[in-house]
C-alpha cells in the first residue's frame, strides 16, 4: 500500500499542536509505516513539497508571509486540515486583534525588548527595534485559515488532544473524511 504523503506546517502558532502530535506516543511508530512525512518542523526539509496528500496547518494567518504561504500550501495539498484553535479561530495570536498593529509592535519589540541595541545611545525607539525590519509585516488582524483558503477538516483544541489527532489520522488513513464532532472542542 502506498504511504500517505503528509506535510505539517505552522503559521502564527506556538508549536503546541505539533507537541500534541508527538504525544500520540507509540502510535507514531505504527504511523511511520503508513505515512511519509514530507515536510514540517519535525523533519528537516526546506521546501514545501509539490504535492502532499494531507497537510496539517497549525497557527493563524497573521502576517504577509503567512498569507502568501497558505495559498501555496492549499494549492499543493490534497486534504487541508486546520490543526488546532489558532488555525481555526485565531485564538491566542488573535488576542492582539483588539489593538492597532503599531501598538502591538511597539509593545513587543520596543517596550518589552530585553536589551537596548548597541550604538543607539541607550534609547529605545521604533527605528532601533530590529523586528521592524526583519519580521514580515503584520496584517491588521490575525485571522483563521479558512477565511483565506478552503479547509477540508477542522481539528479544534489548544492543543487538540492526542486522541483526537489519532482519530483524525486513522480516519484519513482509512480514506474517510473524519467527523470530529464530540471528539474535541475549542480550547480543549
Amino acid at each position: 500500500m502506498a504511504k500517505i504523503r503528509l506535510a505539517t506546517t505552522w503559521l502564527d502558532g506556538c508549536s503546541g499542536c505539533h507537541m500534541s502530535f508527538l504525544d500520540i506516543d507509540e502510535l507514531l511508530i505504527g504511523l511511520a509505516e503508513k505515512v511519509e512525512i514530507l515536510f514540517g518542523p519535525l523533519v528537516d526539509y526546506k521546501e514545501f513539497p509539490e504535492h502532499a496528500d494531507v497537510t496539517l496547518v497549525e497557527g493563524a494567518v497573521s502576517n504577509e508571509a503567512d498569507k502568501k504561504n497558505i495559498v501555496m500550501i492549499r494549492a499543493r495539498s490534497g486534504i487541508l486540515v486546520s490543526f488546532g484553535d489558532c488555525a481555526i479561530t485565531a485564538n491566542v495570536p488573535g488576542m492582539r486583534n483588539r489593538y492597532p498593529v503599531g501598538e502591538v509592535m511597539k509593545r513587543a519589540y520596543v517596550e518589552n525588548a530585553d536589551s537596548v541595541p548597541a550604538g543607539n545611545g541607550g534609547v529605545r525607539s521604533e527605528a532601533a527595534g530590529v523586528a521592524f525590519q526583519t519580521v514580515p509585516p503584520l496584517c491588521q488582524k490575525a485571522r483563521p485559515v479558512h477565511e483565506f483558503v478552503p479547509v477540508d477538516v477542522f481539528l479544534p483544541g489548544c492543543p487538540p488532544p492526542p486522541e483526537a489527532i489519532t482519530f483524525l489520522l486513522t480516519e484519513l488513513l482509512a480514506g474517510r473524511i473524519p467527523d470530529m464532532t464530540g471528539r474535541t472542542r475549542f480550547g480543549a
Partner: peptide, 18 residues
C-alpha cells in the same frame, strides 16, 4: 463551549468581529 461540541460546531464560518 459545550454547545459547540453538542451541535458539532468545529469552526465558525462567519468572520470574527474581534
Amino acid at each position: 463551549q459545550n454547545l459547540a461540541v453538542e451541535l458539532g460546531v468545529t469552526h465558525v464560518r462567519y468572520p470574527y468581529l474581534y
